[in-house]
């Protein structure tokens, strides 16, 4: 059940895994996600479906080790099994009919945006991919992104690779230069998506963002993932994760994301402590 078939380290804290999950692979579409549990008592965490292979029955996930569960996941190796793996969840991205699109990825968001870029590219859509990273050490999937885009613009916060710029600066220049986008797809930290939406708003370009809220069940049962879109409450797991960036209340969502900061930190400390104990043994 849910065996890890492949594992790759993309950079210091980002890993890729290919998981055997035929039920999920059969129906997966770009924009959808899975929820997994590493162990029997573990937390349920959502991760985007980075790639799927219907024939082999596999799902690829790319994750950043940010807390207890993602760190525990990173400890597993080829041959190990995940306890639970459910999906595909959420609505697939609506990509039909798009002719020219700017995809904006921030950090790990690039991995999440990659399946969309790839599908659009395969559909014959012109894809300008703007990928922003903090520095050259954390750039991931550069070759894949190149292959999935018409033009790739890599920028870093410190100029250590590509241009020293913010993704929003590049996006604005491209728009100002006369590029007519049917849509802008932004995936990354909420603050980045907020500023991308602010950048496109004056031009009236449709802007789709992917809301990575805190989730529990992922089926619409708890409401923990709720956010405000156009004044209405929506559940990110069933109504999303894609939403119209011009309607999302990002400030509200960012505050909700911070809800468990202290407890998450304690959980990491507990796990690190357990890992150390294991190593000492």
């Amino acid at each position: 059940m849910y065996q890890i078939l492949e594992k790759k380290t993309l950079n210091a804290n980002t890993k890729l895994m290919v998981i055997e999950a035929p039920h999920v692979a059969r129906k997966a579409e770009p924009g959808q996600f899975i929820i997994l549990r590493v162990t029997e008592d573990g937390e349920r965490i959502p991760l985007t479906i980075a790639e799927y292979d219907r024939e082999k029955g596999t799902i690829t996930i790319i994750f950043q080790e940010v807390g207890a569960t993602t760190m525990a996941l990173g400890q597993l190796n080829v041959g190990d099994c995940l306890h639970d793996f459910v999906g595909p969840l959420g609505k697939a991205s609506e990509l039909e009919g798009l002719k020219k699109v700017a995809v904006v990825g921030g950090g790990l968001g690039c991995a999440i945006a990659y399946p969309q870029a790839k599908k659009l590219h395969e559909m014959g859509c012109e894809v300008d991919l703007i990928a922003g990273f903090r520095n050259k050490d954390i750039i991931i999937l550069e070759d894949e992104m190149k292959a999935a885009s018409t033009n790739l613009y890599v920028v870093t916060d410190d100029g250590s690779n590509g241009r020293k710029a913010l993704v929003t600066e590049v996006l604005k220049e491209l728009i100002e230069a006369g590029n007519q986008y049917d849509a802008v797809i932004a995936i990354g930290p909420m603050i980045m998506m907020k500023f991308v939406a602010e950048t496109t708003r004056p031009y009236g370009i449709k802007t789709i963002v992917s809301m990575n809220t805190i989730m529990v069940d992922g089926t619409g049962m708890c409401g923990g993932c709720r956010l405000t879109v156009g004044g209405e409450t929506k559940f990110a797991c069933v109504d999303g994760p894609d939403f119209d960036g011009h309607l999302v209340d990002f400030d509200g969502s960012m505050r909700r994301s911070a809800m468990y900061k202290a407890q998450e930190k304690a959980s990491v400390e507990r796990h690190e402590c357990n890992l150390m104990k294991q190593e000492v043994k």
């Binding site: 529990v216 049962m221 708890c222 409401g223 923990g224 709720r226 405000t228 409450t233 509200g252 909700r256």
Partner: peptide, 23 residues
């Protein structure tokens, strides 16, 4: 599918549906 109360402030941190809290 949980119903929320429908009053202002419902998305503040510390507001749960019973489903989420109990789950």
């Amino acid at each position: 599918l949980p119903t929320f109360i429908g009053v202002p402030g419902e998305n503040a941190n510390g507001v749960y549906s019973a489903n989420e809290y109990l789950t």
